[in-house]
Amino acid sequence: MRLTPNKRGLTSTERITITVVSIMILLLALPSVNYFKTQLIHSGYVALSTSPSTKIHQLATDILHAPIRWLYANHQLPVIVVDIDYPEWEKLADNREQAIEQGSIPAIRSQVPAKIAFNNQHFNADVRLQGDLTDHVSGHQRWSLKVNLKKQHAILHSQRFALISPHVRTHQGPVLFAQTLRLAKFNIISPQYTPVKVVVNGDN
């Protein structure tokens, strides 16, 4: 005769406690809604409505269609590689920290030397933070940078240009507006926008 120990099941109180603790751990581990919103904005996502239900429907639809759109998207963007030595990069990081603390990028900011690579060509340049408001430096990696190439060199017909995350310029809005002006035969000078892929110190 083999004796087996009695296996006591969980009581209802224990099950409720385990469930509540598991939910609390899950809520603490998951990023906040604001974090998801910020990541969507920085990734270039634009809501086409102000209604919460319509936004959710649009997001769900776009997620379902994302794989097909990614397959047929143009991934061959021009690539600009920026290399900045660590001590010089720390100066830009200090300016960013100061901007976050005071609510705006300091008027007197560090300008540091950098190496710029484009189309298998290499250029020397001076780089500083671009812009005034903190939306230029709010992202963890995407900081707006003002680039001034030396020795009269130019990239995409510009010796001085800014590398700016699309969300700072309301994504495709300025480009569409400039094209509308040209189609309407308005002789108005507007900034030139060129989408590029940027790699800063090895980070895409």
Rank of each mutant, 00 (worst) to 15 (best):
V81G: 09
N95I: 04
Q111P: 01
S190V: 10
A93R: 09
L183N: 13
S53E: 12
R142K: 01
D83Y: 14
L129P: 05
H167V: 00
K146P: 01
S43R: 02
S51N: 11
F161A: 02
K150D: 08
I16P: 10
V79Q: 10
S144Q: 02
N119Q: 14
T194H: 13
V46H: 04
N34V: 11
A178V: 07
V112N: 08
Y86V: 02
S110D: 06
P106R: 01
F177G: 04
A125G: 09
P52S: 07
R160A: 10
K7C: 05
V82T: 06
H171K: 03
I56Q: 10
Y72T: 13
G131N: 04
N124C: 12
P174M: 05
Q141C: 02
H57P: 02
E14G: 05
V198Q: 03
H167P: 00
N187I: 09
L30N: 07
W143D: 05
P166E: 00
L10T: 03
S110T: 04
Y72W: 14
P31I: 00
L64R: 15
I56K: 12
T54R: 13
D135T: 10
N74M: 02
E101K: 14
N187Y: 08
I116W: 05
K185W: 08
Y86Q: 09
E88P: 03
G44K: 01
P52T: 07
S158D: 14
H140V: 10
A114M: 07
W89P: 01
L30M: 06
Q179P: 06
S51R: 10
I41T: 01
V33R: 02
N95M: 04
V199E: 11
V168R: 01
Q179Y: 02
P52V: 11
R2S: 15
